[in-house]
Design a protein around this nucleic acid. Structure first.
Lengths: 369, 369
DNA sequence: AATTATTTGTGCGTATGTATC
DNA sequence: AGATACATACGCACAAATAAT
């Protein structure tokens, strides 16, 4: 287990690499001359040159004839290369993702960046694979990332630390990790949840359920808004009417149809995590003969095409989608050139009123005013 | 301009590199020993070793102690690395693209590949940039690509030739270039156009218009199917009722609203390039008080969400979308391991009948049977 | 402005070790 | 066991670029 068999030139290159990674030698700094190293290690100049050459090939050092050998500036290298941005998102839905990615791609490509998109499928393990792949590439100028299962502990922290060590700018979209100091561009999920619940309350609803996604940050934030609104109105919010689902449930929501129906039985209104969930809920309720909005009012979030088309048009709080992508990309570019820039942004919430909520203040039907 | 100042070791490494790229030395083959090269070039063994080391760093050669120096097998290297697939598509719509990419991503990630997605925005110049970026990376195991403006001449042919020279497998989806010998996974656009037109004819229509996209292969294929069906029925097909639009028109289709209305005035039926066009056409016609299907029947292609939801539900020929992505990815993986595999696939066309076509054989309304 | 010392780049010769065939 | 081939390591010499004097 000793280092008897390790060649001298490897020992020296390892030592030099350590000097750089441990910041004993900093970028741009001139390192010891070949002859100094010869004396330090009692080795021939040829051997020392061999060691240095290895690090030059690794783009850790660069040498200038007549001047000396220097530690590479990684920033400079990154700018020299064809700039490349990695986008990491959880999974491909048909409404938020295409619009957001279009916004991102529009801005980045206009600024000469190439874009790589990867998917984690909301699995931390795959997030790890993707990050490792990005770390292997040495030409990534920045990263736009959506947190994967952001509510759960994450074992990829060392990978994020490595990204930060390399000074690769990072912006979160939609949801983010609280344990990493990085800007995030999001809609205001908590306020959307709050306002959506308040809206139901204003329409006379008192027993209000909620369906939230447990394994992402947006679901938790929307839930916290729901809780705040309910508690401010003196209503119970820690009840069986709050139903937690995960990504897998969303895909096969019919499997939990009877559970949903049972848990929401006493409710007059329900806040749905997003339009997809709302649409699925309406389908399920329809099978049980429960009509929206007459028997149950629904408010949802995202205001996607699913809210606009289809049978009952949904009252929904818009997700900024394309604008969010554009903002994230614009801010990332600025962040690349100005590391001090505060790239975070939160979009204000708003409401699009349609026909999925019944005003039960008045005895008969009718909606606004 | 002579090579007086070029160092010997560079001359030798250049010579060796040329021997490999010109296939005078083939992958796996043992090259001359260091001592042979010393004699050949009248140089010292150290200088020869320097030359060889350069090529080892470039992963063109590999040496085995006691055995010799060999030409690298690029296939083997590619397999050793974290396998990476590049997907190049034209632009991000909200219905075909997300589904196709989901199919691709599903299959590839399950097989341990990472996926990079790039967009050309249907501009050949950007296609060129993307291809150059891919060529710069040396770890791309395969490419899934949608042809950009496939009906126009393309100046990126040298880049495609370089891909083929490097034996990087390539599969086209949706539309392809006829000037490059590569497999393609597509829906059968010509037959869909043919069957869609025949369908209108079978419903009694005789003056049938068509709106096609000029700058992609799918538009042209769908048009050719339209022509064949019309000509078989003895109907005129080379008329003002055929309207060509490009990608830009699709985005701002309202700008050509009056043109569309004017050109389709005498028609009782029209074949639309896709659901997006059909949906836009219905909006435009509505402004002029023309009702679908009573005043004009519409058949479209793709059967996206746009066909299913919204006012008048569209009779449409499905695009395989997710299945197409899955097939392309599956075939690409097979092609990577078995270069002889015929990876082409064409999906059969089918029809989803809804309410956008009126049967004018019968005097009064009614649709199927 | 010219000189000098320093530093890296190129190249040769030699010796020994070790893996492969 | 021996021949061959690559790996490691030392020595020296000179060229070319740079920086300091």
């Amino acid at each position: 287990m000793n280092k008897e068999n390790v060649p001298e030139y490897i020992k020296v290159s390892d030592w030099l690499r350590y000097q750089v990674t441990s910041h004993k030698l900093i970028p741009g700094q001139k390192i010891y001359s070949e002859n100094e190293l010869c004396r330090m290690f009692c080795l021939s100049r040829q051997t020392i040159r061999h060691s240095i050459n290895i690090l030059i090939n690794e783009e850790i050092l660069e040498s200038h004839r007549g001047s000396g050998t220097y530690v590479c500036d990684p920033e400079k290298i990154r700018r020299m290369r064809c700039a490349h941005i990695a986008v990491i998102t959880t999974y491909v839905d048909t409404y938020i993702f295409p619009n957001t990615i279009r916004g991102i791609e529009d801005v980045l490509s206009k600024n000469g960046y190439t874009v790589q998109i990867s998917f984690t499928n909301n699995e931390p393990e795959r997030e790890g694979h993707v990050l490792e792949d990005i770390l292997k590439r040495h030409d990534v100028s920045g990263i736009i990332i959506e947190a994967t299962k952001s509510s759960l502990p994450n074992m990829n922290r060392p990978l994020f630390r490595e990204l930060q060590r390399r000074n690769i700018p990072l912006i979160f979209i939609n949801s983010y990790y609280s344990w990493i100091k990085a800007p995030h561009v999001t809609m205001n999920d908590a306020r959307a949840g709050y306002r959506a619940t308040k809206y139901l309350i204003s329409k006379g609803h008192r027993i209000i359920g909620g369906i939230f996604k447990a394994d992402d940050g947006q679901g938790n934030k929307r839930y916290s808004g729901y809780c705040r609104a309910m508690s401010e109105a003196g209503l119970a919010y820690d009840t069986p009417h709050v139903i937690w689902i995960d990504t897998e449930d969303v895909r096969h929501i019919e499997d939990i149809g009877s559970k949903l129906k049972e848990r929401l039985r006493d409710c007059t209104g329900v806040l749905c995590y997003n339009d997809e969930v709302a649409r699925a809920l309406i389908r399920i309720l329809d099978e049980f003969g429960i009509k929206v909005p007459d028997d149950l009012s629904i408010v949802s979030i995202d205001n996607s095409d699913l809210a606009k088309y289809g049978g009952i048009k949904l009252t929904s709080f818009p997700h900024p989608m394309e604008k969010l992508g554009e903002t994230a990309a614009t801010n990332l570019i600025r962040l690349i050139h100005d590391p001090g820039f505060d790239a975070s942004y939160e979009f204000d919430e708003s409401i699009i009123e349609r026909e999925s909520v019944k005003d039960i203040n008045k005895p008969s039907s009718g909606a606004h005013r």
